[in-house]
Write a protein that binds this DNA or RNA. Structure first.
Lengths: 211, 211
DNA sequence: AATTATTTTAACCAGATGGTTAAAATAATT
DNA sequence: AATTATTTTAACCATCTGGTTAAAATAATT
């Protein structure tokens, strides 16, 4: 390998190890020694590449909170899909993300509550405008003939139903599945269908109410 | 005050302080000195009353995870309420609990994921049977003419919608409310009505589907 | 082969932290 | 007033932890 490739390679090994440890244990629970071990290097080299724990943590956090935000905004804004199609699409992809990153929800919840200011800072740095979200809400409200407020609650309900089963897994798995991990994974897979149906049905049920 | 009352009083002061600090910062983030300060005593006395940090933490955790479980099982099993009434009752009371204990959801999520074994241990010690929950599921399934599986997803959806807005508060508040705390509190209050409606409507919408 | 870059070794430091101890001080009981 | 129980003071300890350093060793470049 060339010198520059070696450098990038080591950097990546560290970042992957740091992600694994920080996501699982959080800033407070993670140890630099553990990250070094996980990366297969020593502590001196770890500090040589990334000066401090906080700096390394922030790099991981920024990437992971970015992943946490669904890359589905264009889809939710598209004119070619109905509301139902958008919901099915969103739920399936969002739950899939967490099936691939099962500890992402817990990590985000833990860290944003430890230091809520990081959230505001992330939005400023990433240049994310809340306009997109408000546009989605307005779009749903228009298409479904409901108030923006109600459309917003609907979105929060949908997102909640995708995220919570991952964050609350230890309890639900224990109470309802007697700790059977395989069964719980099946349950999570199933939810792609059930959550979307649940949301779509709720709108249908609302329509008869107001008729 | 009598000697025994003084003892109980100090004990309570410590437990209240410990709850405050542990719930906010978690086991890893909490400091014994901070708990002592919060209780208005010194570290020596803190250790005199509760031998170790872990022991003190476990006392708090057991109480709080107990609070986390809705004391609403009898209501959900009652024969005198319809499904709709049960949902409205449950959602209102559960959200109310979190309005009074805003950091309870984050605390529980943080700690059960840090040490999932505590959950199983709690269930053994508290003697909680999963039969109650399974009975509620069966009851819903019977009353609504849906499968137990579907009834279970419904319950998880309902619980998710109550809990997540508290655990994910920093993000939602930032993205949709520009950090306006008062507005977010109003939104949470509103949800008592909207979440219940959402769930009830979903069942209504499902009924037309199968007709 | 000589030079340069990357990594390891291993000792070390300072500060934080959980926990202890014994004596002094304060408050309650008799 | 004397005794007993509660709390403070304050020094102290061992361990952990983030972080540093300089020299030796290994690998890549020229």
């Amino acid at each position: 390998m060339t010198a520059k490739k070696i450098e990038k390679d080591t950097e990546n090994k560290i970042l992957e190890a740091a992600k694994k440890v920080f996501v699982l244990k959080g800033l407070d629970g993670a140890r630099m020694q553990e990250i070094a071990d996980e990366a297969g290097i020593n502590k001196a080299l770890l500090h040589y590449y990334f000066r401090s724990k906080d700096q390394l943590f922030m790099m991981i956090f920024k990437v992971e909170i970015g992943n946490f935000f669904p890359r589905l905004i264009p889809i939710l804004l598209s004119k070619e899909m109905t509301f139902d199609q958008k919901i099915y699409h969103f739920v399936e992809n969002y739950i899939d993300l967490f099936l691939k990153n099962p500890f992402l929800p817990t990590f985000i919840i833990r860290e944003i509550n430890r230091n809520p200011q990081m959230v505001a800072q992330f939005f400023i740095e990433a240049g994310i405008e809340s306009n997109n979200f408000k546009q989605i809400i307005a779009g749903f409200a228009g298409e479904l003939g409901i108030s923006p407020k109600e459309a917003f609650h609907l979105i929060i309900n949908t997102v909640s139903a995708c995220i919570f089963p991952f964050a609350g897994r230890p309890i639900i798995e224990q109470v309802f599945f007697d700790g059977n991990t395989a069964e719980y994974n099946h349950f999570l897979e199933e939810r792609k269908k059930f959550v979307a149906e649940f949301v779509v049905n709720s709108i249908k049920g609302r329509m008869i109410n107001t008729k």
